[in-house]
Structure formats: structure tokens, C-alpha cells
């Protein structure tokens, strides 16, 4: 079953068409990497699916719930109750983490479970401890975000997103604010999650990272999906001229 279905998605900023008729699916357990040059529309696509931006037309369906459809060329969004349900099915990891600085690591993770899902503090804490262990941060529960390294902060933000038990996890350039040495930490965590069949979509600038972690790659340019497919195929043996050109520039 497709967890995420995107159909004919379009978005315009003023005169600039940023997304032109984007369609793709993400299946349960898939790890999808979205790559492409700056300005290709990958961030906007990401923001539209995560409801940080509203698309102009098209359809987005998240595990059977319609977030938006298009009727008579106008986008129709689901009632806010449904949007809230969808919101909780999607986990999001930001480029610059966006942890809550005034809360400890533990508070960051249990904030939404206790106040949004209304779990008991005990239950949320037990779950958070498991997540921290998984992230290799069990000793940092009482620390504040400013006391952690970038890689550690990013792992806390992954734990925070996972605490809501999302069906699909999105990463917005998860390593671009990190030291190249710290990228490995995040890569390890994502691989770990992939083993558990977590469905993930990763927007990234790092080709090596995408190649290593993804089992499906989408290459975007100029608001279109130029090519999508198996990472070995796309990175090693693409027939598409535009993809070749882009990858070549990266390899140099």
C-alpha cells in the first residue's frame, strides 16, 4: 500500500512556477531520497507535503487520508480535524533541528506525547527512554539542546519525531548543518530505522548519503521530476542527459 501518494502537484510563487505537475508514490518501508540542484523545487515539495506551505493544485493522500484534492482547478483541503490526524502520521526532522531550547532532551521528546496524544507522563517517559537508547543518547536525557553537538541534537530531533509513532518520517537535508564527520552518526540512525521498515523520505544535497541510504531516488530539476528509480541505476548508469550533467558536477 502506498503510504504517500502525490498526484499532479503544482505550486506557484508570484510568477514563478516552482512545482509543475509532480506525481510520485511512497510505499510502506521504502526509503526515498529526493535530490536535485538548488531551486529545483525539492524543498517546496517537501514543505507542501508537510503542510508548512499550501500547494495550488493536485492531490496529496497520506495513508488513505486525503489531505488535499483539486476541484475545478482549485485546491480543496481536508477539514482541520482530518489535517490534524494526517499531521500526526507524518514525522518531520528539520535541517537545523528546531529543538525547544528551554526544555531538556527528555522534555523535548515527551512534550507532544503528553500534551497532544495525552499519554501519561510515565508512559511517555518510558517510551522516550527507549528512543534515546536507540539513538545512543541515554545519558543525555537531562541535558539541554545547547549542551549537545549538532549530531546529537539531530538525533534528539529524530527521537522527538518518532515519539508520536509516525507512519512516515521526513528529513529536510538532515546533514547539511552538520560537520562531515557527524554525518555518519545520522546515516547510522537512518539505516537502523530502515531495517525496522520505517518509511522515510529524505531531501538531501549529499549524493553519497542518498546512494547509501535510499532504495529509491527521485531527481528533480526546474520543478519537474526528471528521473526516478533504483539508486544504483540512477547514480551508476543513468541514460538521462540532465541527470548525467548534474551528477558529473557533483562528482568533480
Amino acid at each position: 500500500m502506498a503510504i504517500l501518494e502525490v498526484k499532479n502537484l503544482s505550486k506557484t510563487f508570484g510568477d514563478l512556477k516552482v512545482l509543475k505537475d509532480i506525481s510520485f508514490n511512497v510505499e510502506q518501508g521504502q526509503v526515498v531520497a529526493i535530490i536535485g540542484p538548488s531551486g529545483s523545487g525539492k524543498s517546496t515539495l517537501f514543505r507542501c507535503i508537510n503542510m508548512l506551505e499550501r500547494a495550488d493544485s493536485g492531490e496529496i493522500t497520506v495513508s488513505g487520508l486525503k489531505m488535499m484534492t483539486t476541484e475545478k482547478n482549485k485546491a480543496v483541503f481536508a477539514p482541520s480535524k482530518i489535517l490534524r490526524q494526517i499531521r500526526l502520521k507524518i514525522g518531520l526532522v528539520f535541517q537545523n533541528f528546531n529543538l525547544f531550547p528551554h526544555m531538556s532532551v527528555m522534555q523535548n521528546i515527551i512534550e507532544a506525547p503528553t500534551h497532544v496524544l495525552k499519554q501519561s507522563k510515565k508512559e511517555a517517559k518510558a517510551n522516550a527512554e527507549k528512543l534515546l537508547e536507540k539513538m545512543g543518547l541515554e545519558e543525555k536525557a537531562k541535558s539541554y539542546p545547547c549542551e549537545l553537538s549538532g549530531g546529537q541534537q539531530q538525533r534528539v530531533s529524530i527521537a522527538r519525531a518518532l515519539a508520536l509513532n509516525p507512519e512516515i518520517l521526513f528529513f529536510d537535508e538532515p546533514t547539511s548543518a552538520l560537520d562531515p564527520e557527524l554525518t555518519g552518526e545520522i546515516l547510522k540512525v537512518i539505516k537502523e530505522l530502515a531495517k525496522e521498515k520505517m518509511t522515510m523520505v529524505i531531501v538531501t544535497h549529499e549524493m553519497a548519503f542518498a546512494r547509501e541510504v535510499a532504495n529509491h531516488v527521485i531527481f528533480m530539476d526546474g520543478g519537474y521530476i526528471v528521473e526516478e528509480g533504483d539508486p544504483e541505476e540512477l547514480f551508476g548508469n543513468t541514460q538521462n542527459e540532465r541527470t548525467k550533467q548534474f551528477l558529473q558536477r557533483y562528482n568533480n
Binding site: 508537510n50 503542510m51 508548512l52 490534524r84 499531521r87 500526526l88 507524518i90 514525522g91 518531520l92 528539520f94 537545523n96 528546531n98 529543538l99 525547544f100 531550547p101 528551554h102 512534550e111 507532544a112 500534551h115 497532544v116 522527538r160 519525531a161 508520536l164
Partner: peptide, 27 residues
């Protein structure tokens, strides 16, 4: 307060009131 704090709160399903009183105001 950086816009990311609002985005993170909305991603976690928090209401506007929760976001303001629990995340924004203390900062």
C-alpha cells in the same frame, strides 16, 4: 523567536494556544 519553533510545534500537532504558552512565551 525563530519561525522554526512554530514549525516544529505544528509538526508535533500542537494547537496555537499550546504553541504560544508552552513553546514561545517561556523563550
Amino acid at each position: 523567536i525563530p519561525v522554526g519553533q512554530y514549525e516544529a510545534s505544528s509538526m508535533l500537532g500542537m494547537t496555537k494556544m499550546q504553541t504560544f504558552f508552552r513553546i514561545i512565551l517561556p523563550q
